[in-house]
Amino acid sequence: MTEEQKIQNPSTDSNTAVIEIKDLHKAFGTNEVLKGVNLTVNKGENLVILGKSGSGKSITIKCIVGLMGIDKGEINVFGTDITKLDNTGLNEVRVRIGFLFQNAALYDSMSVRDNLGFTLKRHEKDLSEEEVENQIKEILDNVGLVEAIDKMPSELSGGMRKRIGLARTLILKPEIILYDEPTTGLDTITSREISELIIEIQKKYKTTSIIITHDMPCAKLTGNRIMILKDGVIHAEGTYEELEKSEDEWVRSFFL
């Protein structure tokens, strides 16, 4: 299986850090969620974050795209500290990042075509209608759902929504993709398909990713490196094999 994983996961360039979080603190009132998170993601790497429900995984990646103000710390993305950027600067970084929401967050009032076109038309204004249509179809083809182009989000199943959400994330060809539980709530076969899709995207577009998941097969398949969040800090870090054999019983319990 080690062999298989090596084949599936392209080697990563461990020299250049694309995302670098230093001493991140975030509290909601008296609820201190993050108490000094430090993490680095290198170019081309898939980093998996594990952790119990409510441990602050979603909060961490929301901070990376500036959806939430932070209390203390530094978040360097492409070498700039995004916590110090104004809205314009932040938006310049955001177009280079794709974000897959935990519940896909498709725009309910728009068809699948418009969900994808909405972002595309706003950021690439000189595309003709035909080029927009072609790009939408190309991306939908990547996630295997070209036939859903005219459907409304309410007509899609959970797995389809996740894929369309992923397609919408891909439409601007982002350099970083942040996946918030891409496989949660899906059957094992669909989960595996999505995991394979994530690896395919990594290879095809040379993306750097953070993948939050509770799904161990997905973590094993997609992750080059795994981090476990506990009590507001990174509790353990390593490859799947290393953590599986960890001395720490609590860490090992994830892999049972």
Partner: peptide
């Protein structure tokens, strides 16, 4: 349903 956040992160 985080649709507003989704717009925000796609720089809209």
């Amino acid at each position: 349903t985080e649709q507003i956040d989704a717009m925000e992160v796609s720089a809209i």
